[in-house]
Simulated assay, not measured.
Amino acid sequence: MGFDLEALREAVKTHGNVARVVIAAIKGSSPREVGAAMLVWKNGQSGTIGGGTLEFQAAKAARSQTAHARQTQHALGPDLGQCCGGAVTLLSEIYDLDAVDSLDDTVVARSASNTEMPLAVKRLLAQARGQGLTPEPQLLDGWMIEPVHKPARNLWIWGAGHVGRALVDVLSPLPDLAITWVDTGPERFPETIPAGVTSIPTVKPAELVRHAPRDAEHLVLTYSHTLDLELCNRLLSHDFRFAGLIGSATKWARFRSRLAALGHSPERIARITCPIGDPSLGKHPQMIAVGVAAQVLHPARQNELKKDLSA
């Protein structure tokens, strides 16, 4: 969780002045954690601070807000009739492009009351910027502190067909993923590419493998078995954190044989996961995407990846 600077910048560019409402502090139970935020503009919003009455009233108040920043307290049970029973402090701020451009790109620290920065905040910022320590989102001596969000994982999706599009629809809203989407031509992509997704049309997609970070994760699902095989070949020669190939057991048996003939060892080939997803969900593109997304995001698989990286 962190301050999503790019999402805020894009919202301001698209909608003009935008209010950002963030949970600054919690007492007791709450529908979301400290640092959860939503963006609100005249006719819409994105993100969530937990839904329900709290979010509805906070969005309504943000649309009529005149002050640059406002800090409010809300008792979820007595005031709002929500079952959580705790209390939250919200910080609501209005941003235009100048305000967004003035923000620090490492840690955003500010006070709704424009008080002088306390020593405790100065020390925390010095540690964050000087020692590379990322602070947790928190309200400290009246100052809201949030690290600027940086996607933690690079995901490359090879193929913009039905399954590729469904996967991008499912995964692109997740803030921890920086998605690179590759296919053979611009006509293969939809007219609108989701925010946070970099689309790359290229006649020879396999040539891009060498530009991928070695800790990137890859999902190979192009329209061509020949291209799929070449991508697997290049990935095995390059390195990756995870690589998954869409296909049947029969397809994977043929690929294993061909990859072995190209000089890859059985142990190396076994690093590619095929099939990907959950076959029990069916073959509809959206169902395939749901299964693959669950596999990519499953905590147990992430623990396995961490072990691989530390080995």
Rank of each mutant, 00 (worst) to 15 (best):
R210H: 13
L245D: 01
P279M: 15
R188D: 06
Q82E: 12
N303I: 06
P137L: 14
F3R: 05
H218W: 14
A293K: 09
K13Y: 01
F255T: 10
H74E: 14
E6I: 11
M117K: 12
A243N: 03
A152K: 15
V290M: 15
T184E: 09
P194Y: 05
G16R: 03
T48R: 05
M287I: 14
P118Y: 00
N233P: 05
K307H: 08
Q45D: 10
P147A: 10
A195C: 12
R110P: 12
V290D: 02
N154H: 12
Q131Y: 02
Q65P: 01
P137F: 12
A61P: 00
I276T: 08
K42C: 08
V220N: 03
S280C: 12
Q286Y: 06
L235T: 01
A58V: 03
S280M: 11
G2T: 12
G161Y: 03
P194R: 03
I246D: 04
V21A: 12
T222S: 09
R210M: 13
Q57H: 04
Q82Y: 01
R9M: 11
A87Q: 07
S310V: 07
R32A: 11
S257H: 07
P205Y: 08
I272E: 03
F242D: 02
D308L: 15
Q131K: 14
R258V: 04
P299K: 07
A25Q: 15
Q286P: 06
P78I: 13
N303S: 06
D101F: 00
K27A: 15
S199N: 00
I288G: 02
A289V: 11
M1E: 07
L97S: 10
D96S: 13
V21W: 02
H238I: 04
I200M: 02
A11I: 13
G164T: 06
T48G: 09
Q57E: 13
K27M: 14
L305A: 10
G247Y: 03
W41E: 10
A37D: 12
W156K: 03
G77K: 15
A7I: 05
L5I: 12
W156M: 12
L103K: 09
C232P: 04
E93R: 13
R234W: 11
D98W: 05
H211E: 09
P275L: 11
N17Q: 14
P213I: 14
A160K: 01
K42F: 03
V88A: 08
A261R: 11
G164I: 10
I94R: 10
I49P: 00
K204D: 11
H218R: 04
L259D: 06
A24W: 01
A11Y: 06
A7C: 08
A206R: 00
V170S: 05
W252P: 01
N43G: 09
S64W: 03
R63Q: 10
F56V: 03
E136F: 13
P213S: 14
S102F: 02
G244N: 06
V88D: 07
H264F: 00
V34L: 00
P186L: 13
L259H: 08
L177W: 14
R268L: 15
S29Q: 10
F255W: 07
Q302C: 09
L174S: 15
D239W: 05
S280P: 00
A243E: 00
V203D: 01
V22Y: 02
L171H: 08
L91Q: 05
R63L: 11
T184R: 01
F56T: 02
L262C: 07
